[in-house]
Simulated scan of single mutants.
Amino acid sequence: MAANNVAGRGKTVPEILALAFGAIYLLVGVVGFFVTGFDDFFAHDTNETLLGFEINGMHNVVHILIGVAGLVLGRTLAGARTYGWLLAVGYGAAFIYGLLAINKEWDFLSINTADNVLHILTAVVGLVIALLPVRNAVDSRTTR
């Protein structure tokens, strides 16, 4: 039986990080709709912020999708690793997009500098989730 499927096995650090980031992003996406409402999903320069991060409806949807993915994929180590790569690549691309899109009319996610900082940090966390070495759990019952 693979280590990923052993009943009673504790969560690894990558799994915990994937679940935590999933929960945080899901919460941010849901709370974001209390700030933006549900109209004009692709508004540019909304001046609607959540903790200093500019958002619009589409930005909220992306956060919800990233959050749900973390909660679903974070249940296994293989899933958490996949989520880590999705964060690294997706948020790395979002960082590059943000560098190009800030203050442009075509910025459909309404990105600001704080968003860019968060995006590159999330990409780094994704790499940690994807690449962090994990020790196999030792069951003391089998060593006697």
Rank of each mutant, 00 (worst) to 15 (best):
N60P: 04
E15F: 10
V138S: 15
E105N: 15
H63P: 02
D39W: 04
V62L: 09
T143W: 09
Y91V: 05
R9H: 11
M1Y: 09
A93P: 03
A101M: 01
N47Y: 08
R9S: 12
F53D: 02
S140D: 14
S140V: 14
A43V: 12
A3C: 09
G29H: 10
I64W: 00
A94H: 07
A88T: 03
L86F: 04
I66T: 08
G57M: 00
K11W: 12
T82A: 15
W106Y: 00
E105C: 07
E105T: 13
M58T: 00
D139S: 10
D115T: 01
L109N: 02
G98L: 03
G67H: 03
R75I: 04
Y91S: 03
G92A: 00
N136L: 15
S110T: 03
R135E: 15
G67C: 00
A43I: 14
M1A: 11
L118S: 13
G32H: 15
L109F: 05
L65F: 09
A3M: 14
A23P: 11
H63S: 05
L118I: 13
G70C: 06
L50K: 09
R141E: 13
H119C: 06
R144C: 07
G22E: 09
K104Y: 06
V61T: 01
V72F: 04
V125G: 10
N4T: 03
A69P: 04
E15R: 11
L86N: 03
Y97T: 07
V128S: 13
V35M: 07
A3R: 13
P133N: 07
D39Q: 12
K11C: 08
E105F: 13
A80G: 02
L71K: 07
N4K: 06
A130V: 10
D45I: 11
E105S: 15
M1R: 11
V128K: 13
K11D: 10
L86G: 03
A114D: 14
H63G: 01
L73P: 06
R135W: 10
G37H: 05
G126T: 06
G10V: 13
E54D: 05
G90D: 02
A3L: 14
N116L: 08
A7I: 09
V72L: 11
A7M: 12
H59I: 00
Y25R: 12
Y83N: 01
T142Q: 15
Y97N: 07
L19T: 14
L19G: 15
D115R: 01
H119M: 06
V128P: 08
G37T: 06
D40P: 03
T113K: 10
R141V: 15
V125N: 12
H59C: 00
N136C: 13
E15N: 10
A130W: 08
M1S: 15
R75K: 09
I102A: 10
I102F: 08
D45K: 15
T46W: 06
A78K: 05
Y97L: 04
L109D: 01
